[in-house]
Design a protein around this nucleic acid. Structure first.
Length: 586
RNA sequence: GGUCCGGUAGUUUAGUUGGUUAGAAUGCCGCCCUGUCACGGCGGAGGUCGGGGGUUCGAGUCCCCUCCGGACCGCCA
């Protein structure tokens, strides 16, 4: 299958059954073990590693040449496959070796700046600069090969469900809503710019108007925002849209897609896709993307509905908008040092809690808290009841403004999950988060903004609230969360001009602005637009989760950018030729 | 726009209160070794301590500025 004019087999192919045949292999010199006259070389390609033997008794000149090879030289060798006297069970090819009788150096190599072992000694920056070398390493090769398999499985499923892969343009129009656009100057239209798509959102909706019913695309998207380990300026979406569907149709269809991909890639049957409202997620986990692999949910001693604090003399609690906490099973044995670390963790500027109240409920029933002088033991026992704690547990309380406190507890919960080993890499817990708010108030710009995007429809029961009480309108939107990572999101869309205009007005666009920026879709809605809805998955995140159950996506992208959006291998972005600049009217 | 961490040999890193010749591992080079597989043994070379300025008798170490990398907050419909 891989036989070419250069080679008869790959480096991962030879077995005992090949013994006594003569083969020609090509590959990179991975390790050289000179052993007196005799020399062993591990020859590597993407299929595996095969041991070569050079024996001076067979060919003294050749054995000497072999000793002079360097790491990552690329060579072509011919020889006989022989059974090894000392087999290596760690290698699939470990039963055999190739006794080399002819060797040609196809290309020499400088000594690589870092080792290409699975556990490389290279730092992040160096590996990025020499990305093509880093990609020779087995873990990264596996990631990209598996990413290809994920894409195949996705296409296999969607093709089977009648979805049509249709390409959409990359040079499009800049629109005011959403993320900052990357722009491309137009030479033929001096002073004007294209934008690169943040997603094919409007195009896929127009394809529904055209009657394409079921559309998908694995497509690059661009957003000019600050980066994180799970955010790149260009990233890939599995972009999907369906006509004549309601929310339930979309959730079913894509739950099954995720199941299909997990079967194919991990041979794993996902058990259930529970649903949770946005409000419930925020209340019980402090976040809209809860990690369901472990418990430790939030419980409230004081919030806008109730105050269960009882008798005490502690102003920190009285003055707080919200007092809430989690109980950590079996963690009453935490040391003072560990508790200090947790306190420091929540006080970090990024988390921003004022402090952390710790209550250790010992196995013997005694209580040790950081607020012993303010709050009596019987009151603490009532707190324990609210927090669903048991003897042996550690209770952690935070008091402060509602959203800060929830966020801090959410981060604290994740940190404890990490420390206690509750976020297992073999465990996958999907979750649909539904009923997001349609709008959120942007204090900076003093206007309402779409939480999902401005084409999202809303719950019919909330229709009247759009004008009277926008904060309470529930969107017909959903996110798919996997182990605390948002891997996809979508909505049932608006499909008539009247509602779309109401939405634009609500977002502060005048009739004229809406017409100017979004005229194409408003017009399309006047020519028989079907009800439709869809979803988009972050393909890079989906891959990083399904392949390695990790959040960082850079190791699943062949040529990613760093956290300043730079490609350190190319050294892009860069200056351009002044002549070119002039032509572009810049 | 902001916060935090880091930058010492090719690479990964140690370096105490500011004090003698900046130490280790790995890689690289040389010699020895015929069954290794992270081979082993002996020896050797290799340092603008990111850059600039300052404090000091003396700076890898302290201060200021700056560049680079990483993580995060804001931001990311």
């Amino acid at each position: 299958m891989h036989s070419t004019t250069y080679r008869t087999h790959t480096c991962g192919e030879l077995r005992l059954s090949h013994a006594a045949t003569t083969v020609t292999l090509c590959g990179w010199v991975f390790r050289i073990r000179p052993f007196g006259g005799m020399t062993f070389i591990d020859l590597r390609d993407r299929y595996g590693i095969t041991q070569l033997v050079f024996n001076p008794q067979t060919d003294a000149t050749l054995a000497e040449q072999a000793e002079r090879l360097g790491r990552e030289y690329i060579i072509q060798v011919t020889g006989q496959v022989v059974e090894r006297s000392n087999k290596n069970p760690a290698l699939p090819t470990g039963d055999v070796e190739v006794l080399v009788t002819r060797m040609q150096v196809l290309n020499a190599s400088r000594t690589p700046p870092f080792t290409l072992e699975d556990q490389t000694d290279g730092g992040e920056e160096l590996r990025m600069k020499f990305r093509y070398l880093d990609l020779r390493r087995r873990p990264l090769q596996q990631h990209l090969l598996q990413r290809h398999q994920v894409a195949r499985a996705v296409r296999e499923y969607l093709d089977g469900q009648g979805f049509v892969d249709i390409e959409t343009p990359h040079l499009i129009k800049s629109t005011p809503e959403g993320a900052r656009d990357f722009v491309v100057p137009s030479r033929l239209n001096p002073g004007q710019f294209y934008a690169l798509p943040q997603s094919p959102q409007t195009f896929k909706q127009l394809l529904m108007v055209s009657g394409f019913d079921r559309y998908y695309q694995i497509v690059r998207c661009f957003r000019d925002e600050d980066l994180r380990q799970d955010r790149q300026p260009e990233f890939t979406q599995i972009d999907c849209e369906m006509a004549f569907v309601g929310r339930e149709d979309v959730l079913q269809m894509f739950e099954h897609m995720v199941r299909h991909v997990f079967r194919r890639i991990r041979n794993l049957e996902l058990t259930e896709f529970p649903r949770m409202s946005y409000a419930e997620a925020i209340r019980t986990y402090g976040t809209d993307k809860p990690d369901l692999r472990f418990g430790m949910t939030l419980h409230y001693l004081k919030d806008e509905y109730a105050n269960l604090l009882g008798e005490h003399h502690f102003s920190v609690l009285d003055q707080a908008e919200v007092v809430a906490g989690i109980s950590v099973p079996g963690a009453a044995s935490f040391t003072r040092k560990q508790l200090d670390e947790l306190t420091e963790f929540v006080r970090r500027p990024q988390i921003g809690a004022g402090g952390l109240i710790t209550i250790r409920w010992q196995e013997d029933g005694s209580l040790k808290s950081s607020i012993d002088k303010y709050i009596a033991a019987d009151t603490l026992l009532r707190y324990a009841e609210v927090l669903r704690a048991r003897p042996g547990d550690l209770m952690l309380l935070i008091a402060g403004p509602a959203s800060n406190t929830r966020r801090a507890l959410s981060e604290l919960r994740l940190e404890l999950g990490r420390r206690l080993g509750l976020r297992s890499a073999d465990d996958f817990r999907p979750l649909w988060v539904v009923d997001f708010p349609l709008l959120e108030y942007d204090a900076e710009q003093q206007r309402w903004a779409a939480m999902h995007h401005p084409f999202t429809s809303w719950h019919p029961d909330d229709d009247a609230l759009l004008e009277s009480d926008p904060a309470r309108v529930r969107a017909n939107a959903y996110d798919l969360v996997l182990n605390g990572v948002e891997i996809g999101g979508g909505s049932v869309r608006i499909h008539n001009r009247t509602d779309q205009m109401r939405m634009f007005r609500r977002l502060g666009l005048s009739e004229q602005e809406a017409e100017q920026k979004f005229g194409f879709i408003l017009n399309a809605f006047e020519y028989g637009a079907p009800p439709h809805g869809g979803i988009a998955f972050g393909f890079d995140r989906f891959c990083s989760m399904i392949i390695a159950n990790q959040e960082g996506i850079r190791d699943f992208i062949a040529f990613p950018k760093n956290n300043m959006g730079r490609d350190v291998m190319l050294d892009a972005p860069s200056d351009i030729d002044p002549e070119l600049k002039k032509e572009l009217g810049l």
